[in-house]
């Protein structure tokens, strides 16, 4: 919004009149377009009849309560999967982020107190560990979530592990999202001013203590908007449960369509539900971001400028949802 006022001059009376006329014209054009492109085709195929919409919006309809009972089961299942997935990916993601930061300092260590071969061995080992985690992160970040879920649901039974489809979905989502969250947190920690780490070292904290007591809480704070955006992504991704026939809302929708054969109507209702929840979540993220940007105005806190990396991973996190 702020950009608009910069791109254009403040409109004078003539410009304002022009804008008003244009607005009315364009508004009419959009309405006409909507009539011909949306209303007419829908009407022609009889998609606007109460017969198809009734079970979803008319409380008097015989199927109304049954349909909404099923839909609420779907909503509950979707939310359960999303909640479990976000909690476990936050926990694992934090662990992975701490691990990566630890390994990074470990790689820099020279192990001078040991005999030469031992120190070389230790250095090689820590380098190897760090490389392995790096590769794992890249692999899981580069794989589609659909496939991780599919692989988990298809692969675990091959090794004799069978469980509820809910847990396949949660595990699949966790694998992907914990890695993304780990990257968000890591970029948050690395974006902090080096003084934080140096000060912690100066008062005698070990690297692990530094990470846990000093860096991690600040990273959480700076990255809160990105983390909330990731929540939106997780919520959207739970809809993938349908490929492993978990009874989330889309699957329920499919059952309803099987009984009532009204696909467009059911999907519109499901889409509206998703949009409502996710829109409020993204508004929350924006609100938190503004709060943080206003921030503590006392000292030179790093909160004012989230690092560039962070913004990118945020954009990616927002986009990578299915």
């Amino acid at each position: 919004m702020s950009q608009q006022s910069v791109l254009y001059d403040v409109p004078g009376p003539r410009q304002r009149r022009l804008t008003l006329v244009l607005s009315i014209l364009v508004g009419l054009l959009i309405l006409v377009g909507a009539y011909f492109l949306v209303y007419l085709p829908m009407d022609e195929k009889g998609q606007l009849t109460l017969e198809l919409w009734g079970p979803l919006i008319d409380p008097g309809n015989e199927n109304f309560s049954a349909v909404w009972d099923r839909i609420s089961v779907g909503i509950v299942n979707t939310l359960t999967a999303a909640a479990l997935a976000i909690v476990s990916s936050l926990a694992i993601g934090t662990l992975v982020a701490v691990l990566r930061i630890q390994l990074k300092t470990l790689v820099k260590r020279r192990f001078t107190g040991f005999a030469t071969p031992v120190s070389y061995l230790l250095r090689g080992l820590s380098w190897l560990l760090s490389a392995v985690t790096r590769v794992c992160i890249e692999v899981f970040r580069g794989l589609p979530v659909v496939l991780t879920i599919f692989f988990v649901a298809r692969g675990l039974p091959e090794f004799g592990i069978t469980m509820d489809t809910l847990f396949y979905l949660v595990i699949g989502l966790t694998i992907y999202n914990s890695v993304v969250i780990a990257e968000i947190l890591r970029s948050g920690m690395e974006g902090l001013p080096p003084g934080q780490r140096e000060a912690a070292a100066a008062i005698g904290l070990s690297p692990l203590q530094t990470t846990i007591i000093v860096l991690l809480p600040q990273a959480f704070r700076i990255m809160l908007p990105a983390l909330i955006s990731q929540l939106v992504v997780v919520l959207k991704d739970t809809s993938l449960g349908f490929i492993i026939s978990y009874e989330e809302i889309l699957n329920i929708g499919k059952q309803i369509i099987g009984a009532l054969s009204n696909p467009i109507q059911v999907y519109i209702v499901i889409a509206v539900l998703f949009i409502l929840v996710n829109y409020s979540l993204s508004k929350l993220a924006q609100y938190v971001q503004r709060r943080l940007a206003r921030g503590r105005k006392t000292a030179d806190t790093p909160t004012q400028n989230p690092p560039a990396v962070a913004l990118v991973s945020q954009a990616e996190g927002g986009a990578s949802g299915v």
Binding site: V26, G27, K236, I275
Partner: peptide, 30 residues
């Protein structure tokens, strides 16, 4: 979304809001 005419801006915003908050799965089903 950056045009000076409000209805066009509203159209762009509505498009982004709808498609960003909807899972791709739902779009695919549609």
């Amino acid at each position: 979304r950056i045009s000076p005419v409000p209805p066009l801006r509203a159209l762009g915003t509505a498009y982004v809001t709808v498609f960003r908050n909807m899972p791709l799965t739902v779009v695919m089903f549609f």
